[in-house]
């Protein structure tokens, strides 16, 4: 929280998000090790843990990573990310089930929908800042929810059920959980690598400059709005990829995915894992999904425990789990 005491007016300038502008030397090779570690863990995991559960974690982790790209590196807090996740999930489910698309095409359809939606909504939303940006994204997402509730093709609250998993590229049978798992893991790794590349590209550096001080970035000749729109669309596209994958994994798409509480859940995952850390959202997603799955027997206590985690995170560990770890190993994560 180095920049926490700097005075500022709007959200992007005064966020307490730890900055990763100044990475100590050797960070890149350290991150490479983390990458390899994640890849190895992904290979071993399905033999230890239940693959369907892992796939759920991966889908949500990708979703949270996409969200964190926008919040942690664009400084934009979207309250409506469920819209892109959910719409992609619907389109992917619908195209696979009704139009008989192969899984890769269905996922592509869903992702493209989210990208398009992100482009339109982003163009509207990035014109406002701080909390107003958040409220516009929320309002637009509520409209998407209403549309999904009304539209015939979504199947109302029953959702689109029994979506075929199909054969990837025509010959890989995804009906087997293990096979599907490795496909999901591969997509996830691809998403993670892409986000890592974006953050560490010149584009990412400009984003961080805009996040930390927009007027200065503008005075340096950067068109802040174009950069913001670009990162918004990237974020919604990746959120869409996560949603589209999820529809294929669970063979269903439902209103839960577009409801505002899903937008809240992704904020929670990012917060728990550590905002502005590259790998934090993965940890956050794992913790939250594990809680929803393994504490399900606790019944009503699940929401209370969730509330307690929120309060604990804000009061005591504002930098999230990986933020703490990063401080401990003295390297950004």
């Amino acid at each position: 929280m180095a920049n926490a005491t700097t005075a500022g007016a709007a959200l992007p300038a005064d966020t307490n998000i730890p900055t990763v502008l100044h990475e100590p030397r050797g960070t890149a090779s350290f991150h490479l090790k983390v990458f390899i570690g994640i890849a190895v863990a992904l290979v071993i995991a399905p033999f230890v843990l239940y693959p369907v559960f892992l796939m759920k974690v991966l889908c949500f982790a990708l979703f949270a990573l996409a969200f964190n790209l926008l919040l942690g590196y664009g400084g934009l807090l979207s309250f409506g990310h469920a819209a892109y996740f959910g719409m992609a999930s619907y389109l992917s489910a619908y195209s696979a089930k009704v139009w008989g698309f192969s899984p890769e095409l269905a996922i592509l359809t869903g992702t493209a929908t989210a990208a398009l939606l992100g482009l339109v909504f982003g163009a509207v939303a990035i014109r406002r800042q701080g909390i107003y940006f958040s409220m516009i994204t929320l309002a637009l997402a509520q409209m998407v929810f209403f549309f999904c509730l009304q539209a015939k093709f979504t199947g109302g609250e029953d959702g689109i059920q029994a979506v075929p998993r199909g054969r990837l590229f025509g010959f890989i049978n995804l009906a087997d959980d293990r096979v599907l798992y490795f496909v999901v893991a591969a997509v996830f790794l691809f998403g993670l690598a892409l986000i890592y590349r974006i953050i560490h590209s010149p584009f990412g550096q400009v984003l961080k400059a805009i996040r930390d001080n927009e007027p200065r970035a503008v005075s340096l000749g950067y068109r802040a709005n174009q950069y913001k729109l670009a990162v918004f669309v990237l974020s919604t596209t990746l959120a869409g990829l996560a949603g589209a994958l999820k529809a294929i994994v669970f063979q269903l798409a439902s209103l839960t995915d577009v409801h505002w509480s899903m937008s809240g859940e992704v904020v929670l995952m990012t917060l728990v894992g550590g905002m502005g850390t590259v790998f934090g959202p993965i940890v956050g997603a794992a913790v939250i999904v594990a809680m929803a799955n393994y504490l399900a027997t606790l019944g009503a206590w699940v929401t209370i425990v969730q509330g307690i985690i929120f309060v604990l995170c804000v009061l005591l560990f504002r930098e999230g789990i990986l933020g703490l770890v990063a401080r401990w190993v003295k390297r950004p994560l």
Binding site: A4, T5, T6, A7, G8, L11, D14, T15, N16, L77, G130, I131, G264, V267, L268, L271, A300, W301, T303, I304, Q306, G307, I308, I309, F310, V311, C313, V314, L315, R318
Partner: peptide, 27 residues
Amino acid sequence: STVHVDHLYGLLLTFGLALIIQGLFRN
């Protein structure tokens, strides 16, 4: 109280409190 707090943390904190209060009444 010198540290400037982001909107976000106040919102998340009160959201958490809301979940707890509602959960307790539900129980």
